[in-house]
Every structure is written in C-alpha cells, then in structure tokens.
Amino acid sequence: ITGDVSAANKDAIRKQMDAAASKGDVETYRKLKAKLKGIR
C-alpha cells in the first residue's frame, strides 16, 4: 500500500513540477524536487 501512495505522490509532484517549470517558477520547482527526493 505504501508503494502505491508514494507512486501517486510522485506523479502528482511531477505534474506540479511541470506546471512550475512552464511558469518559470524556479523556487517551487526546487521545493518539489526536494520533496521527490524525500519520498524515495
């Protein structure tokens, strides 16, 4: 179950990262990237 949750989280975070990148929001992008590392 835990694996599914983190996989879903990663997917959601990647989508947020894409949105931040397209807006040029480097700050948010970095925060999300750090979150991704924390999940692993």
Score class of each variant (00 low, 15 high):
residue 2 T to S: 10
residue 2 T to E: 11
residue 2 T to H: 12
residue 3 G to M: 12
residue 3 G to F: 09
residue 4 D to H: 13
residue 4 D to V: 11
residue 5 V to W: 09
residue 5 V to K: 11
residue 5 V to L: 12
residue 5 V to H: 09
residue 6 S to D: 12
residue 7 A to L: 12
residue 7 A to M: 14
residue 7 A to I: 10
residue 7 A to E: 11
residue 7 A to K: 11
residue 7 A to F: 11
residue 8 A to Q: 12
residue 8 A to L: 12
residue 8 A to V: 09
residue 8 A to K: 11
residue 9 N to S: 12
residue 10 K to M: 14
residue 10 K to W: 15
residue 10 K to L: 14
residue 10 K to N: 05
residue 11 D to P: 00
residue 11 D to F: 01
residue 11 D to M: 08
residue 11 D to G: 05
residue 12 A to D: 13
residue 12 A to F: 08
residue 12 A to V: 08
residue 13 I to G: 00
residue 13 I to W: 04
residue 13 I to Q: 01
residue 13 I to H: 00
residue 13 I to D: 02
residue 14 R to E: 07
residue 15 K to S: 06
residue 15 K to Y: 05
residue 15 K to G: 04
residue 15 K to D: 05
residue 16 Q to F: 05
residue 16 Q to P: 02
residue 16 Q to N: 03
residue 16 Q to K: 06
residue 17 M to A: 02
residue 17 M to E: 02
residue 17 M to V: 01
residue 17 M to P: 00
residue 17 M to F: 01
residue 17 M to Y: 02
residue 17 M to T: 00
residue 17 M to Q: 00
residue 18 D to Q: 14
residue 18 D to M: 14
residue 18 D to R: 14
residue 18 D to S: 10
residue 19 A to H: 07
residue 20 A to I: 01
residue 20 A to L: 01
residue 20 A to S: 01
residue 21 A to S: 05
residue 21 A to V: 07
residue 22 S to F: 06
residue 22 S to Q: 13
residue 22 S to N: 07
residue 23 K to F: 04
residue 23 K to I: 13
residue 23 K to T: 08
residue 23 K to W: 01
residue 23 K to S: 10
residue 24 G to T: 01
residue 25 D to Q: 01
residue 25 D to C: 00
residue 25 D to T: 00
residue 25 D to G: 00
residue 25 D to W: 03
residue 25 D to K: 00
residue 26 V to L: 14
residue 26 V to H: 11
residue 26 V to G: 05
residue 26 V to A: 05
residue 26 V to Q: 06
residue 26 V to K: 08
residue 26 V to F: 15
residue 27 E to M: 04
residue 27 E to V: 06
residue 28 T to F: 04
residue 28 T to I: 04
residue 30 R to I: 09
residue 30 R to N: 11
residue 31 K to I: 06
residue 31 K to C: 11
residue 31 K to D: 05
residue 31 K to A: 06
residue 31 K to W: 04
residue 32 L to G: 01
residue 33 K to G: 04
residue 33 K to E: 14
residue 33 K to S: 07
residue 33 K to M: 13
residue 33 K to D: 05
residue 34 A to P: 01
residue 34 A to N: 09
residue 36 L to E: 02
residue 36 L to Q: 02
residue 36 L to M: 03
residue 36 L to D: 02
residue 36 L to A: 01
residue 37 K to F: 05
residue 37 K to D: 15
residue 37 K to E: 15
residue 38 G to H: 08
residue 39 I to Y: 07
residue 39 I to P: 05
residue 40 R to L: 15
residue 40 R to E: 14
residue 40 R to A: 13
residue 40 R to K: 09
residue 40 R to F: 14
